[in-house]
Simulated assay, not measured.
Amino acid sequence: MKKILLLGIGNVLYADEGVGVHFVNYIKDKYQFTHPDKQLDIIDGGTLAQGLIPIICQYDHLIVVDTVNSVGVGPGEVYFFDFDQAPAEIDWQGSAHEVEMLQTLNMMDMVGDRPQTFVLGVTPTVIEPMVLGLTDALQHAIPTMEKALLAQLTSLGFNHHQVANITINHVIPDAYKRGCYDDA
């Protein structure tokens, strides 16, 4: 059975930096996905980076959801790309967890353990300590991110149906209570 991992990365205590975690929890609560011979797991990876290697290497296909920095682009811009063909304007030197996740994926690649990897990223507005939530620019980017993800999963043969009528704001208040090992 082919295994696909949707992995949210970020620190929920730093405003927009938590978008990856909030987004995957939102998708997990809002949709149910089915496929006759593929498995989709949705995990909040927080800021674990290298600690996620034993989990990530079990998958054939990886979709990482995170903030990305991009030269000359405003907040709330959405990117979806193959990790091996990252756009030139993507700057991986943003937050500490972005650099750690990049290093983690590169290390996995060197030993042949990295699955086919895609990145669903959005440029952040505010990265401030002790702010739980997303700015308006990122709130407005969520529908675009959702469409890109659903299109990718549909291209992999997954069916989906909405099981809850929620917005991303429904999952944010409890984000700090959820975690990687609760979902694995």
Rank of each mutant, 00 (worst) to 15 (best):
G133A: 05
L120F: 11
T123I: 00
T67Y: 04
G46V: 10
I43Q: 10
Q116E: 15
P75Y: 01
I56P: 04
V24K: 03
P115E: 02
I42M: 09
V111A: 06
T117Y: 02
G121C: 09
R114D: 03
A151T: 15
D41M: 12
G112E: 09
N69W: 01
T123N: 02
F118L: 04
S70Y: 04
Y176S: 13
F23P: 08
E98H: 15
V163C: 13
D183A: 15
L132F: 14
Q39A: 00
V163H: 01
I53A: 14
Y181C: 00
K28T: 10
V99W: 00
G76E: 05
A164V: 12
D37Q: 14
M145C: 15
H170E: 13
G76F: 03
F23L: 11
T117A: 01
T104D: 06
L132C: 13
G46H: 11
G157E: 06
T104I: 04
I168E: 05
H170M: 01
A184H: 07
D60M: 07
C57T: 13
A86G: 01
P54Q: 11
C180E: 07
Q85N: 15
L149S: 08
Q103S: 09
K147D: 13
D84Y: 04
Y59H: 10
L6V: 09
F33K: 10
L149Q: 09
